Simulated assay, not measured.
Amino acid sequence: ERQTALLSRRGLVEGSLSKSRIIVLGTRGEMTEFANLYAAEHLIISMRDPWEIAGSITAAGSVFIGNYSPESAGDYASGTNHTLPTGGWARSMSGVNIESYMRRITYQELTPAGLAALAPVITAMATAEGLDAHAAAVNIRI
């Protein structure tokens, strides 16, 4: 209440706070599980030994570690991205970053033994999809 009273956008903050909730969890494991399910746009880990938890976070737009890493640092000055996934999309998407604008190429090379080991799976899936030429491309090689 003291901090809200000092803000120029007090009405907006009060509206947000009226819809906010505090969730108390019993263990660090529960905290991590909830954080990964919620997949926050911004996640602040403000606790003793925050890196112990940070290594378990798999879904967040941007993670702020410790008491001296406010979200506003990431928004304006610390160099991390501010275009982040919202609405739980951090479970499957990253924020926009330099890699968003880079082309990536994958390479693969199979040995004769490797292709022979994969052949039953490849031909079964190709046949199930009605792609006989894909199955033939394997069968001809083995």
Rank of each mutant, 00 (worst) to 15 (best):
E1P: 14
E1K: 10
Q3F: 15
Q3E: 15
Q3N: 12
T4R: 15
T4P: 11
L6A: 13
L6Q: 12
L6I: 09
R10Y: 03
G11A: 15
L12A: 13
L12Q: 13
V13L: 12
E14I: 02
S16L: 15
S16W: 13
S16C: 14
L17C: 07
S18V: 03
K19Y: 12
S20K: 04
I22D: 10
I22C: 11
V24I: 10
V24D: 07
L25H: 07
G26C: 06
G26Q: 09
G26A: 09
G26P: 10
T27C: 00
R28E: 13
G29F: 01
E30H: 09
E30T: 06
E30C: 08
M31W: 05
T32G: 11
T32Y: 06
F34Q: 07
F34E: 05
A35I: 00
N36G: 07
Y38W: 08
A39R: 03
A40Y: 01
E41V: 06
H42S: 04
L43S: 03
I44G: 14
M47E: 08
M47T: 09
R48N: 11
R48V: 13
P50C: 04
P50G: 06
W51H: 13
W51I: 11
E52F: 07
E52H: 09
I53L: 11
I53V: 05
I53D: 02
A54S: 11
G55Y: 02
G55N: 06
S56I: 00
S56Y: 09
S56H: 15
I57T: 00
I57G: 04
T58F: 08
A59P: 00
G61L: 02
S62M: 06
I65M: 01
G66E: 07
N67V: 12
Y68M: 14
S69T: 05
S69M: 00
P70E: 01
S72R: 01
G74V: 01
D75Q: 00
Y76S: 01
A77G: 02
S78D: 01
S78G: 02
S78I: 01
G79T: 00
G79L: 05
N81T: 07
N81M: 04
H82W: 03
T83D: 11
L84N: 05
P85Q: 10
T86A: 12
G87H: 10
W89Y: 15
W89S: 15
A90L: 03
A90F: 01
S92K: 11
S92G: 09
M93D: 10
M93G: 04
M93A: 15
M93S: 11
S94F: 13
S94Y: 10
G95I: 02
V96K: 10
S100E: 00
S100N: 00
Y101F: 15
Y101A: 04
R103T: 05
R104Q: 14
I105M: 15
T106M: 15
Y107P: 08
Y107A: 10
Y107F: 15
E109H: 13
E109S: 14
T111H: 04
A113E: 14
L115P: 01
A116R: 09
A117E: 12
A117F: 10
A119M: 03
P120T: 06
P120V: 05
V121I: 14
A124N: 08
A124K: 14
A126N: 03
A126P: 02
A126F: 06
A126R: 03
A128T: 02
E129N: 05
E129L: 06
G130A: 05
L131C: 06
L131G: 06
D132E: 13
A133F: 08
H134D: 07
A137M: 10
I140S: 11
R141H: 01
R141W: 03
